[in-house]
Design a protein around this nucleic acid. Structure first.
Lengths: 259, 259
DNA sequence: ACGAGTTTGGGTACGCCGTACGCAAAGTTA
DNA sequence: TAACTTTGCGTACGGCGTACCCAAACTCGT
């Protein structure tokens, strides 16, 4: 539990990697590998195979190099994950709607845009879900994204801490809801079992122990929710439901603070 | 990605374990180990050492048995985690406030109680956070808890799917907010670095790259939020802020549906 | 041109992990 | 006591992160 000086050194080095602060002396053998290449390959592996198949060896294989070569450029696996997070945060852009050209009071539209952009980011890179909770890497990608998100709630009558809390609430919801959508919609990432097969197995078992009588509400609602997700309704609809509830909650607070 | 029959067999076996459906033939050597003992030891290990130190060997060591003995009683690591989840869900009790003896219309108080009970559960067992998103094990603990939570929102004017969505919204918030509290409050579970040490290292680095000018909002709000968490204010306050926003959002919806 | 110095690539190895397999110990039943 | 069933668990395999170390590739001073 003690803080090893090694940890601190890695933290500093990762920070320098994130901000491109390390200058090359010009001496020595030319690097055939860059941090950017490693990061790209790592993201490709995680996107394609999932986090549980993500390993230093897999990343190295994809680059056609030896496993230990990666450690010349990146402190370790955990730090590489931080760099990956910063990179995918950098790829989300709040170009128009969240900026000043929308009416300044229309923060709700801006937050909706932010919510959808974050959901899209997670759907592009589902492994992000397995990384939370995590201390966010303080790189340019994360900070730019955070700054843009703060601009969306700036000047609507919240204190600094409330702005942070409101954003955390919104983005937390997006993570959770997106996780729900991904969990139910597609083949399960970890077990390799599709949702249908899962219900086909578990449903009869539940009947067998007569839990319908002991858990009437759970069975009724569970079935309804399951049907709902299975495609009769749009999973989009469920995401929107919670999103509007969150925004309503923030809106109610903004109004009482302003009055 | 194909569904191995092995997975299905494990699913069935785990279900039988959860519901105590396996009867003993009476023959053969007496079992010196029970699933309950294994589950208890496993929870103790995860509580004490964290999920990253949780391993089959560690659990076996705590029980004073060989590692492979566990596999006589439990299909594998993943299934043991499912059983642990069901167990800790069973230990949360919604005794009084969330039941019918409160006024039937006071669903908001009931949901607050549920939120706090779930937060307490996560704080007792922080490793739960690393398990989401996860298909919930359909055991007695999980189902009892779900049933009780549904009773809190039954009959207030929501459809079945909306009841499920509202609960998912609330519990998702609780997970996220509790993760935030734990992340900032105590020594970090994974890196072994305390939050103070982290800021001591990262703060000067941020200054060095002059990001205060490029990310004015992020720096201002980040500092404010950090001070807030560090103890000037109660972390309880932040949890409550988001909780009330979520409940406001649900309340606004309930009202419009009823009118 | 050439050795010295510096940096990179990566092979080997160690200690973890989950767990398949198979055998010995311990119990019941005939 | 013999046959059978169930449990405990030692051994072993393949995979992981990564410490260590040396050779290859490059620049520079001479």
């Amino acid at each position: 539990m003690a803080a090893a000086p090694q940890d601190r050194a890695n933290l500093v080095r990762t920070f320098e990697l994130l901000w491109n602060l390390r200058e090359h002396s010009g001496l020595g053998r030319k690097a055939g590998l860059t941090v950017d290449q490693i990061t790209s390959a790592a993201i490709e592996v995680a996107d394609a195979e999932g986090l549980e198949s993500f390993s230093m060896r897999a990343v190295a294989d994809r680059l056609g190099v030896g496993a230990m070569s990666l450690y010349r450029h990146v402190p370790g696996r955990e730090e590489l994950l931080d760099i990956m997070v910063d990179r995918v945060c950098a790829e989300v852009r709040y170009d128009n709607e969240s900026q000043g050209d929308a009416s300044p009071g229309d923060w709700r539209t801006r937050l909706e845009h932010i919510a959808r952009a974050n959901r899209a980011m997670i759907e592009r890179h589902p492994w992000l879900l397995r990384l939370f909770p995590r201390r966010p890497p303080q790189g340019p990608g994360v900070l730019t994204k955070y700054e843009a998100e703060l601009r969306a709630v700036e000047g609507i009558g919240l204190t600094d801490v409330e702005m942070d809390s409101a954003l955390a609430l919104l983005l937390g919801y997006v993570r959770d809801a997106t996780a729900g959508v991904l969990e139910w919609k597609t083949v399960s990432e970890r077990t390799g079992q599709s949702d249908d097969e899962w219900w086909m197995t578990i449903g009869p078992l539940l009947d067998r122990v007569l839990v319908r009588k002991r858990y009437p509400l759970a069975m009724r609602v569970g079935t309804a929710a399951s049907e709902h997700y299975k495609g009769v309704h749009d999973p989009e609809h469920t995401f929107e439901f919670g999103l509007q509830r969150v925004l309503d909650g923030i809106e109610a607070f903004v109004r009482t603070e302003r009055k």
